[in-house]
Design a binder for these strands. Structure first.
Length: 352
DNA sequence: TATTGACCTCA
DNA sequence: GAGGTCAAT
């Protein structure tokens, strides 16, 4: 079947949709694991069409990605009314640039891995997979997604964000029977009945958080360059700004810092990372994820995995979702060593 | 400063 | 219970 050959696979477009560009980016599997990166829980806007083929929305484009033979094939689609002055070649370049930025391809993952291996034998022993990249996402979208993420699972978050985009975002077009929408802007979300409507859509208590967050950003902050300002602020300053937003606690703030504000060293600590810290790095059992505990775990990993500790976290995290912790000899050994490291680290903290 | 329960919904 | 946050104590 032709579907095995990316360039020849057939697409059915609605009348309103046109193909904008297509191209290829050569990249090795150690630099990019497409599935783990897109579906691993940092973005909630990608759908797997077939093995190694994904469709999602970036800006006002529907984007189709296919990974095969060390190459990332891409096709961009836009609404036909989107006017572009670019010729075919420049559109391809522009699209490649968007992907380059989104996947942060100037970051050399293999080099980072080498660094992490030096300080952490879970990397050295290949217990953590390669190819997981941190995506550079849109801050507003990222923020809303992670407000939705509390007490929630990937599947439902994805569904909620899909619904949110369908209701409030602009339609792009229909590709192979599925209609795609832009993520709504702050103005599109700024509606007096937002909470009520989102509750009807089964957002639960997050409906209020989203409504409050939108009100705050639109009417209290009221600054189009708000997120850009945070990008150029220090981690501490940007974090304390984000914490002012209703529905944003430390974990969500850290996710936004890492995934859309370019703070590559931030390590968000969720229940998975927490349990990784307990299982492999000797954090005390039964310890709740209190604020001081969060700080300890986060800064421990930050020190262990520098630089780009947030990227290491994403890789370690994805592994946790996959494997139900098989306990081989080497794992036990690495548990011990890292346990010692953690104790030592805790001592240093206390003494300083 | 740290701990605890409620919060919505779906599996 | 699920990749948390808020508010009260």
């Amino acid at each position: 079947m032709s579907s095995f050959i990316p360039c020849l696979s057939i697409s059915v477009l609605s009348d309103s949709l046109i193909q904008y560009s297509s191209g290829i980016i050569p990249i090795s599997t150690t630099e990019l694991n497409l599935k783990q990166t897109l579906l691993g829980g940092q973005s909630f806007r990608w759908f797997e069409q077939s093995p190694n083929e994904f469709v999602g929305v970036l800006h006002f484009y529907i984007v189709r990605l296919q990974y095969e033979n060390e190459k990332l094939h891409f096709k961009f689609y836009v609404h036909k009314n989107t006017n572009s002055l670019l010729n075919e070649c420049d559109r391809e370049k522009e699209s490649a640039t968007i992907l380059h930025k989104y996947f942060q391809l100037s970051v050399k993952l293999e080099d980072l891995f080498e660094q992490w291996c030096k300080s952490d034998e879970r990397f050295r022993n290949k217990q953590i997979p390669t190819g997981i990249r941190v995506l550079d996402q849109d801050p507003l979208e990222n923020l809303i997604c992670f407000i939705c993420s509390s007490n929630n699972n990937v599947q439902r978050i994805t569904k909620m964000i899909k619904t949110l985009s369908e209701i409030y975002g602009k339609e792009i077009g229909t590709l192979n029977g599925t209609t795609y929408y832009q993520f709504p802007t702050i103005d599109e979300l700024d509606q007096s009945d937002l909470e009520k409507d989102l509750r009807k859509l089964n957002f639960g208590y997050r409906a209020r958080y989203i409504h409050k967050a939108v009100q705050y950003l639109k009417h209290t902050i009221n600054d189009p360059s708000y997120f850009d300002r945070l990008k150029s602020s220090s981690v501490q300053d940007a974090r304390s700004e984000l914490l002012k937003i209703m529905g944003v606690g430390r974990k969500v703030a850290d996710c936004v810092l890492l995934m859309s504000l370019g703070k590559q060293d931030v390590v968000p600590v969720d229940t998975h990372i927490h349990s990784i810290a307990v299982t492999y790095y000797g954090q005390r059992k039964n310890s709740q994820l209190s604020m001081s505990n969060y700080n300890n775990i986060s800064s421990f990993f930050q020190q262990l995995w520098q630089p780009y500790a947030g990227w290491a976290q994403a890789a370690a995290f994805s592994n946790e979702l996959r494997s139900p912790t098989s306990k081989t000899t080497s794992v036990k050994r690495s548990k011990m060593t890292n346990h010692c490291k953690f104790i030592k680290y805790e001592k240093e903290i206390k003494e300083s």
